[in-house]
Design a protein around this nucleic acid. Structure first.
Lengths: 238, 238
DNA sequence: TCAAAAGTGTTGCATCTACACCCATGT
DNA sequence: ACATGGGTGTAGATGCAACACTTTTGA
């Protein structure tokens, strides 16, 4: 006595990272895969795959991520379940996740891939303001993911998901500025994040240019506390 | 070349309304259905059903709602897609929505049902602080829906989804107080909602006791504007 | 005229914003 | 020494919580 016939369940992921652009500024970027099959053959799409019977959606998203980039995300959260009848020729419900990657992880991994000679040909990173035409409703999905990120950065410490273990306040501020698309006052930014209590100052400093800047790291004791009763089971943080 | 075999897609809805309790105060309440079949036979569960091939998830949620209560919601939004492998004996992904009903709609409809003698026997309304043991992971789902509501009431005008077309500020404030579980200062509340610009004052007054209170109605010109690029297609408002 | 709710004013406190200013280091 | 980013101080604006106060009705 079961119904729901002929509906397939897919999982896709919007994987965001901060990439250093040619002018030195940080820009949001994400990987897309070139489709080899119809529908939408030869168009770019979000990485993803079918949900298998043995895994939860969030596990499927993590697997997708590993298969595409070889990386584990610093942050992973469900975005939305898209299921409009006409969003694909066949009936597909896509549970979409969004993930953040540390920029140093990304560069290291890309270098390793290139050195091993097995860099995936059909995967490419795009700056979010230079996206190609996308398959399905993936353009709208990315818009929504970026909206969520920009929204969430205001009341959560997700931005730290872009940065390495230890970072300076200027680096964190640059991440915020790239996400929000506007300049922030360094003095006020410092006070705000210090007051939030999300950072632990280390006794190490980033040296090299001008006055050394203190390095901070994430205070994992403080809960992300913005997912409500959906705790760590449904959100992956590293 | 399709996979995702054996996974069924269900839709459930957390349908919330404000009910006047025995002591005269407003309390959040929701309808549950008594399951007649295994798994979890004879336990209470969220209303829902299978997603059919011809309808989108949000349409399925609206259909569910109509079948259960005969009502159309004043607000309907996707909550989350739950898909843990062990959440049901068979593999089921549930796309869960949450909806708000106007309290006067509810009472009218319940009265009509009772008069017609075809009130559904296996549906009952429960106050959210007196919920029975629930089937599946539905307890956690309701917790999450209530968290979202309490969260959203702070930056959106969702609370007006509980009220009739025209209402006084005291009635709106009472809705907020019931949702948030604490008293609000009438003076400050007035200034806040007036400044938000979500209300249109009418030239009518609620009379009957003491000084008449001006009636207000929802300003539908102002976008809800808290769903981002997911516009009206994915959110139903009446 | 009195109780009670509607509605207005005011004060103090916390927070944000803008920007002046000092500090420490590489060149 | 000086340019540059790191870091601190501060005055004005804004927003919010608390609460005194006035207004308008039913009884």
């Amino acid at each position: 006595m079961t119904q729901s016939g002929g509906i397939q369940v897919a999982v896709s992921t919007v994987i965001l990272t901060l990439r250093r652009g040619e002018d030195g500024s940080a820009v949001l970027a994400l990987p897309l895969v070139l489709r080899t099959r119809d529908p939408y053959a030869d168009q770019w799409a979000l990485p993803g795959g079918w949900l298998t019977a043995a895994e939860s959606p969030v596990d499927a998203a993590a697997r997708t991520l590993a298969e595409t980039t070889g990386l584990s995300p610093s942050y992973l959260e469900q975005l939305y379940a898209f299921g409009a009848v006409d969003r694909s020729p066949t009936r597909v419900v896509s549970i979409v996740y969004w993930a953040l990657l540390r920029q140093d992880d990304v560069t290291a991994q890309i270098a390793a891939h290139r050195a091993s000679g097995r860099a995936p040909e059909n995967v490419r990173w795009f700056d979010v303001d230079e996206l190609p035409e996308l398959a399905f409703d993936h353009s709208r999905i990315i818009d929504y993911a970026l909206w969520r990120l920009r929204n969430k950065v205001g009341y959560s410490r997700v931005a730290q998901g872009f940065l390495p273990e230890e970072f300076t306040l200027a680096e964190l501020r640059e991440a915020y500025e790239s996400i929000l698309g506007r300049q922030l006052d360094p003095a006020n930014f410092r006070r705000q994040v210090e007051a939030a209590g999300n950072l632990i100052p280390t006794d190490r400093f980033r040296t090299g240019s001008h006055r050394p800047a203190r390095l901070y790291r994430d205070n994992t004791d403080v809960e992300l506390a913005d997912r409500g009763p959906l705790g760590p089971e449904e959100t992956s943080t590293r």
